[in-house]
Deep mutational scan, measured.
Amino acid sequence: IGSLMYASIFGNVSAIIQRLYSGTARYHTQMLRVREFIRFHQIPNPLRQRLEEYFQHAWSYTNGIDMNAVLKGFPECLQADICLHLNRSLLQHCKPFRGATKGCLRALAMKFKTTHAPPGDTLVHAGDLLTALYFISRGSIEILRGDVVVAILGKNDIFGEPLNLYARPGKSNGDVRALTYCDLHKIHRDDLLEVLDMYPEFSDHFWSSLEITFNLRDTNMIPGSPGSTELEGGFSRQRKRKLSFRRRTDKDTEQPGEVSALGPGRAGAGPSSRGRPGGPWGESPSSGPSSPESSEDEGPGRSSSPLRLVPFSSPRPPGEPPGGEPLMEDCEKSSDTCNPLSGAFSGVSNIFSFWGDSRGRQYQELPRCPAPTPSLLNIPLSSPGRRPRGDVESRLDALQRQLNRLETRLSADMATVLQLLQRQMTLVPPAYSAVTTPGPGPTSTSPLLPVSPLPTLTLDSLSQVSQFMACEELPPGAPELPQEGPTRRLSLPGQLGALTSQPLHRHGSDPG
């Protein structure tokens, strides 16, 4: 009997000691992992102490058991019943959930998450997105703005933001810190809205009876308010094209079509300037034949640059190039080494500058006005007194259609001029006259002087055409309008007829 009692007592005591040691061994194993994590990542002392304290409290609170892992091991129907039991206190005593059906309560219970916070733990920081609604079931918390405590909340209090009033989550206007050990039930806004969409009859009752104890939403960050730039940057990543407008005076608003859609830094370009900076079609017209890549860069430059609305530039004389043409100036200075066709295309550029300027006046029909002061630039669209967005969009579309028509007509005119030049060069190729044979009589004449090349004649003739079109064909006081194609086609051969009437002889060394 004594040996039996000794064996039973010894066996029970050893089993008890073994169970104690097993729990202690698990605790030390998990604690060792936490300390190894702290050492590996070199976490500083204040945060390291918070980690160790939280682990110790969580171990004593749950005995080292992962409740979520245990809950996920059950089937979904059983999980709903378990969640309904775990959140029964909240669902029974909170006013917004009263009167809900059994199915609605089960769906809500599945969406709730339980959070346990030790003292000093910050649940929400200032500036964080308010993605959830919090219900306090135990403990107390404090809300701070800077170093000032603005509120202390306790059991059955609710904090967050009214989700039904805002389409997008706002930002917190303060820090939420736990004063004691707290148990909180939180539900994400997407989950709550999903359940309320499934039960629309409960939705009206819920929003009407929901009383948020403390609204954390920062009202200064609401979209459309003066301080909402940061919020707009976070939620409006896919922005449309940006529009900046110059201020319109009362006198300017009476004149229709007073602005032109141009790229940034293009205030001095012609009315047909689009795409790359520098001139019509993204580059100076005089350098068009020598740089074919300008047409390839036109599309990307047009689509990537934001639109700006600026006044037209001052008018340019008909014979003056659009500006920024070092290529043609070098050719004029060193005409001995340049291609003979460069002079002809220089005359073509003069005609283009004249036609572009006159067509700009035809479509816009307003006098040039000086540029406004820099303080009046970049007025935002949302400022008071601005035109409605639809009106601005319609004006932009009208300007775009005008620019497209202008570009089409300029292309047709350019093709006409090039065809005339090619026809003239085919009839009378460039050549130098040879020395004529002296006559049989004693009164022999001296050799004839060489005839100037055709490109120079073409430049003079085209300059005469531009001056003739600019000065004589337009009646005084009438708006400057571009001439039609047949009129220009008839004027060019008439001007060139006198020049080509002389018999030109080919030089023996000319390969053409």
Rank of each mutant, 00 (worst) to 15 (best):
F135N: 01
R389V: 15
L396N: 06
D357K: 10
S228T: 12
E365H: 04
C182G: 03
M414Y: 04
Q502K: 12
A398C: 15
S342L: 05
S411T: 14
T500M: 14
N164G: 09
P289I: 01
Q400K: 15
L327D: 08
V348N: 05
F214K: 01
P317C: 04
Q467A: 08
H188V: 09
S342W: 11
Y199R: 02
A415I: 05
L184P: 02
A151M: 04
C471R: 14
A269C: 09
Q364Y: 07
E480G: 04
P453T: 09
P223Q: 08
R246L: 13
S313T: 10
P306K: 12
T500E: 15
Q364M: 15
D297E: 09
K155D: 12
G257Y: 09
L421W: 01
M469T: 12
P315L: 15
C369T: 10
F202P: 03
C369E: 12
A431T: 10
L496M: 07
S444E: 11
S314R: 11
S294I: 13
P482F: 05
L144I: 11
P374R: 08
P503C: 13
A412H: 15
L327A: 13
V428P: 03
Q495S: 10
A470S: 10
D147K: 07
F345Y: 04
H188R: 08
A167M: 13
G139D: 01
G512I: 14
R237A: 11
Q483C: 10
S509Q: 06
Q238K: 11
P280V: 12
L496I: 08
R359V: 08
E230L: 09
D250Y: 08
L410W: 10
C471Q: 08
G356Y: 13
P370F: 08
N164K: 08
A434T: 08
L366T: 10
L410I: 08
L474P: 05
M469S: 10
S291T: 15
S209C: 09
G268F: 08
V428E: 05
F354H: 08
P340K: 15
N173V: 11
S446Q: 12
I351Y: 14
A344T: 13
N215I: 05
D413H: 08
R237V: 13
N404Q: 13
A412Q: 04
D157M: 06
N156C: 06
R423G: 07
P430T: 09
I351M: 06
T445S: 10
R241Q: 07
A132M: 12
T416V: 09
P374E: 08
I379W: 04
D357T: 11
F202N: 06
A398L: 08
S140Y: 07
N404C: 11
R386Y: 15
S349N: 04
P321S: 10
E254M: 06
E472N: 06
G288E: 10
T249V: 14
P317I: 08
G512K: 05
E254P: 09
L462S: 09
S463Q: 11
P292G: 08
L133C: 03
D191P: 01
L216T: 02
S287C: 13
E472R: 10
D250A: 07
R168G: 13
A269I: 08
T458D: 09
E161M: 01
G139Q: 01
L504Y: 08
L481P: 09
R177T: 06
G356R: 11
R138G: 10
L130K: 01
A434E: 15
P372M: 10
S208A: 10
G477K: 08
N173S: 13
C471S: 10
A178C: 12
S203R: 10
L184G: 02
S433F: 10
Q422F: 04
E365S: 14
F468W: 11
D190Y: 04
C471N: 07
D190P: 03
Q502M: 13
Q364P: 09
S228I: 09
S273E: 02
F235R: 11
S358I: 05
L144D: 03
A167P: 11
G497D: 04
K333C: 07
V392C: 09
T253M: 07
P447G: 10
V149K: 05
P440M: 09
N156I: 02
Q362G: 08
L196Y: 02
V392F: 15
R361N: 12
D147I: 01
S137H: 06
G282K: 04
S353R: 06
H507C: 03
P479H: 10
F245G: 11
R246C: 13
L366A: 11
L153N: 01
S358A: 10
R386L: 14
Q467M: 13
L481V: 10
P300I: 02
P440T: 09
I187W: 01
Q364T: 13
P372F: 10
G265N: 08
A434R: 14
G477F: 15
S461A: 10
V348C: 09
S284N: 12
E480F: 02
V392Q: 15
R266G: 12
M469Y: 13
G323Q: 12
E211N: 07
T443E: 11
G265Q: 12
L406T: 11
L133M: 07
G233K: 09
P479G: 11
R274Q: 10
N164F: 08
P370N: 09
R145M: 09
V392R: 09
V428H: 11
A151V: 03
G265A: 09
Q364E: 09
D357N: 05
M414F: 12
P374F: 09
P380Q: 06
P479S: 08
A269D: 08
R241A: 13
P300R: 06
R359F: 10
